[in-house]
Lab assay of single mutants.
Amino acid sequence: YETDHQDYCEVCQQGGEIILCDTCPRAYHLVCLDPELDRAPEGKWSCPHCEKE
């Protein structure tokens, strides 16, 4: 299903190369994640907010 994702990072509120959560509309820079990621994850990815739930 399609979600309207943010076009900015949930953490720093800036645009650029962001990865999109497959569960919610949030988006993140790899370096803004904690722990940060070296590269975009393959397959489905859930953001830290969704992982907690």
Rank of each mutant, 00 (worst) to 15 (best):
H5A: 15
V31D: 07
Y1L: 14
E2G: 11
D4H: 08
P25I: 05
G16R: 14
D38F: 10
H5P: 10
W45Q: 14
I18F: 10
W45F: 14
E51L: 11
E2Y: 15
C9T: 01
C50Q: 02
C47V: 01
A40Y: 04
G16H: 10
C21D: 00
T23G: 05
P41Q: 10
C12D: 01
H5Q: 14
D4Q: 13
I18A: 12
D7Y: 02
T3S: 12
E51S: 07
Q13T: 11
I18C: 02
H49K: 08
A40R: 08
K44F: 08
E17W: 02
E42I: 04
H29I: 00
R26C: 02
D34A: 06
Y28C: 07
L37Q: 06
V31L: 07
C9H: 01
L33H: 08
C12Q: 00
K44V: 03
C32D: 01
E53S: 03
E51G: 07
R39S: 12
T23H: 08
D38G: 08
K52A: 05
L30F: 11
C24V: 00
E53G: 09
C32N: 01
K44W: 02
L30A: 13
H5V: 14
Q13S: 11
W45V: 09
E2R: 09
H29L: 01
E42P: 08
D22M: 12
C47L: 00
T23N: 13
E36H: 08
G15W: 09
L30I: 05
D7A: 12
E10K: 14
H49N: 15
D38W: 04
I19K: 14
C21H: 01
E53L: 04
G43F: 05
S46T: 10
W45L: 06
W45D: 03
I18P: 07
E51D: 04
P35G: 10
H29C: 12
H5G: 15
W45Y: 14
P35D: 12
W45T: 08
C9K: 03
C47W: 00
V31F: 09
P35E: 05
T23P: 02
E51P: 07
K52W: 03
D34K: 10
L37F: 03
T3C: 10
P35H: 10
Q13W: 04
P35A: 12
E10L: 15
C21L: 01
D22E: 05
D38Y: 02
L33I: 06
R26N: 07
E2M: 15
C9M: 02
Y28V: 05
L37A: 13
I19N: 14
D38I: 04
G43E: 15
Q6P: 04
H29S: 00
T3M: 15
E10Y: 14
C9S: 02
Q13L: 10
D7I: 10
D7L: 01
G15Q: 03
V11W: 05
C50G: 03
P48D: 03
L20R: 14
Y28I: 12
S46V: 09
A40S: 06
L20F: 12
L20W: 06
D22S: 12
D7W: 01
L20D: 12
E42Y: 06
E10T: 14
Y1N: 05
C12M: 01
V11G: 15
D4F: 10
C50W: 02
P48W: 04
C47P: 00
H49V: 14
V31S: 10
C24H: 00
H29M: 01
Q6F: 02
W45S: 06
L20T: 15
S46R: 11
D7E: 05
R39C: 06
A27L: 07
C47R: 01
G15L: 04
Q6L: 05
C12R: 00
E53M: 07
H5S: 15
V11M: 15
R26F: 04
